[in-house]
Design a protein around this nucleic acid. Structure first.
Length: 580
RNA sequence: GGCCCCGUAGCUCAGAGGAUAGAGCAACCGCCUCCUAAGCGGUAGGUCAUAGGUUCGACUCCUAUCGGGGCCGCCA
């Protein structure tokens, strides 16, 4: 059914195909009880083949014990009966190529314009609740480029899932319970001493970055000199929570500069001392998945200081992991994995239907154990998808950027956003699959040419805005009834019809980059049509002295702008109204 | 040693098991008295790393091998 705002031409035609197949079952032309799940209706690779193609005959041939072409021959006339189908031809090994009536394409444009920003919105998610955890950077310093990619990816994925009908919670897990925040506290304390006029001792292993200088000053402002010359045990907790708080403020501001806003910041520390870690592990223990044991030494690496120790282990191998994983160290303290288990258990307890973790690729070794934990805790009810974002390699004019974390001069999210702006940052980061490394060239990214997909897409939108300004000046009243005649116009309409389908594919695969590529293609088709107007005045959108024709012509570019705007909205990029 | 990701045009990369594998850049040839030429059209460019397997059909799924990157006991 195409409910409100859910015009999807491909699923409509697929429904038509399926009902025709059901008729054939009923009439004995096909056996009863066939599975139509793999029947697809897609744009053919080659537009010359038609507007859509279905693989129905090939998919059903085996079960129906009939030749694919025979099924296709029988199916074709049934489809052709529908007024939307102009022709149905059998081709190749058993494809059925469909051509649609011109009025269908005009209908698509009308539907786009009526639905506006909601065109392409899907009910696929059916309101299911999904938790997307991303960034989750340690609160020990500013966000760097790698975090930026994760932030953009997670945010766009969240918006995409919302657009596809899921109820999304965007969440950040604050690692404020481990040893690294103690290091942060000690580093901040040295900056505090500095602020008090003493010489800071930023020894090996502390965080040397300048960003802690203001934290030291703020500590002095709050505590005066009262923390000086006291043992660590007396100030550590205070300074730790103070510094962590300040780091999170900074991180929130960094994210805000990128246009990222979380729904939930979840503190690791909040899990300690409340029994929640114990509780989560108890759930596993009841399933017989927790035991005391000794792990084999890791192979390949020379186990210099390795010695067998008894630890508390989670039987993750029961869920496909390579080895069982320690949750409690031999000294009785938790490993980092234990609060992570508790955190994911908390997500499950909050009733999410699905979980997604967006992590840097360096956390790849962590995937299996976390999936194992979630599978065990939810008894397989809650799927966890872990998306790893690969490295970002920085360049300027083709020259690689050197970064040294030790010296504290790594490139931050702020560096990037301040130099190129959030729109460009976001779009560029989404023009690559998450699991492919990304080259980010500060110079090239700001280039205003076809080479740069951001400008290419925005230019298409700006061109439409320009048209609309001109149309308004000419006093043309708009209409949702388009006039389509030329192949280039139909090409754009076909692309617009593909938008809802692309949204669903992208949402299903958790791959927001598909939206960016789609927008590029749409822009390309539109630029091609625009340029045809240069050679053929009949194809110009503004028809001199003919307001009615102009209004009908402008419907198509208006629909293009609607979809570009919606697509960029998912990516978190503002559509430009003009290019300067 | 193990695990994960990657290998597609000279370069950067797309590609829900479907037809003759696509786009941009670079190269070459064209298009502005005309809605933004920041654009468009065309030509050329390929043993989809290799070898097997699964099936009506494989760039796509499975296995092995080669090459590049990442990770690898009580660090997060």
């Amino acid at each position: 059914m195409s409910g409100m705002n859910e015009m999807n031409l491909f699923s409509d035609i697929r429904a038509l195909v399926v009902s025709a197949l059901e008729e054939m079952s009923a009439s004995g032309e096909l056996p009863e009880g066939l599975d139509f799940a793999n029947v697809s209706v897609e744009p053919p690779r080659d537009a010359a083949h038609g507007d859509m193609a279905t693989n129905a005959a090939m998919v059903l041939a085996r079960a129906a014990k009939r030749k694919p072409r025979d099924i296709a021959e029988a199916l074709a006339p049934r489809l052709a009966r529908d007024e939307r189908i102009a022709s149905a031809e059998v081709a190749g090994p058993g494809f059925l190529n469909l051509r649609l009536a011109p009025s269908v394409w005009a209908g698509v444009i009308g539907a786009v314009l009526r639905a506006g920003a909601d065109y392409g919105r899907s009910h696929m998610g059916a309101g299911r609740r999904i938790n997307v955890e991303y960034v989750s950077a340690n609160p020990t310093g500013p966000l760097h480029v790698g975090h930026t990619r994760g932030a953009v990816f997670g945010d766009a994925l969240s918006s995409l899932l919302e657009f596809a009908g899921y109820e999304v919670t965007r969440e950040y897990y604050i690692n404020d319970g481990g040893a690294q925040v103690d290091v942060l506290a000690r580093s901040a304390y040295e900056r505090y001493r500095e602020a008090c006029g003493l010489v800071p001792e930023i020894s090996e292993g502390l965080y040397p970055g300048d960003y802690l200088v203001p934290v030291g000053e703020a500590l002095k402002e709050k505590y005066g000199e009262s923390l000086l010359d006291r043992p660590e045990s007396e100030w550590l907790e205070e300074v730790r929570s103070f510094a962590t708080e300040r780091m999170m403020e900074m991180i929130r501001a960094d994210l805000a500069a990128l246009g990222v806003k979380m729904d939930v910041f979840f503190s690791e520390k909040s899990l300690y001392g409340t029994g929640r870690i114990e509780q989560a592990l108890e759930v596993l223990r009841e399933k017989g998945l927790i035991y005391e044991g000794v792990l084999e030494p890791p192979r390949g690496k020379k186990p210099e200081d390795w010695e067998p120790r008894v630890q508390t282990l989670f039987r993750s191998t029961a869920f496909g992991d390579d080895v069982d994983r320690p949750v409690k160290k031999s000294d009785g303290s938790w490993t980092y994995f234990a609060p992570d288990i508790a955190y994911h258990y908390d997500k499950i307890e909050r009733g999410f239907d699905a979980l997604i973790d967006v992590l840097g690729a360096d956390h790849g070794g962590y995937v299996k154990r976390m999936k194992a934990a979630v599978a065990a805790l939810s008894e397989g009810r809650v799927p966890l998808d872990i998306k790893l974002t690969q490295l970002v390699r920085l360049f300027r004019d083709g020259e690689p950027f050197k970064m040294s974390k030790r010296a504290g001069n790594f490139v931050t999210l702020r560096d990037v956003v301040d130099q190129v702006g959030p729109d460009v940052t976001r779009f560029v980061m989404l023009t690559r699959k998450n699991d492919a490394p990304l080259d980010f060239d500060f110079a090239r990214v700001l280039e205003q040419s076809r080479e740069n997909p951001v400008f290419y897409v925005q230019y298409a939108h700006a061109r439409v805005c320009s048209l609309l300004r001109k149309a308004e000046a000419a006093g043309i009243s708009l209409t949702d009834e388009p006039q389509l005649r030329d192949e280039a116009e139909f090409a754009v309409a076909r692309k617009l019809a593909d938008w809802p389908r692309q949204v669903e594919i992208a949402a299903r695969t958790h791959e927001p980059h598909r939206i960016a590529f789609y927008l590029y293609e749409l822009a390309s088709d539109f630029h091609a049509l625009w340029n045809k107007g240069n050679e053929n005045p009949a194809l110009r959108f503004l028809q001199e002295g003919d307001p009615a024709a102009s209004a009908a012509k402008i419907a198509l570019p208006r629909a293009v702008a609607v979809v570009i705007s919606a697509g960029l909205g998912i990516l978190g990029v503002t559509p430009a109204e003009e290019m300067r």
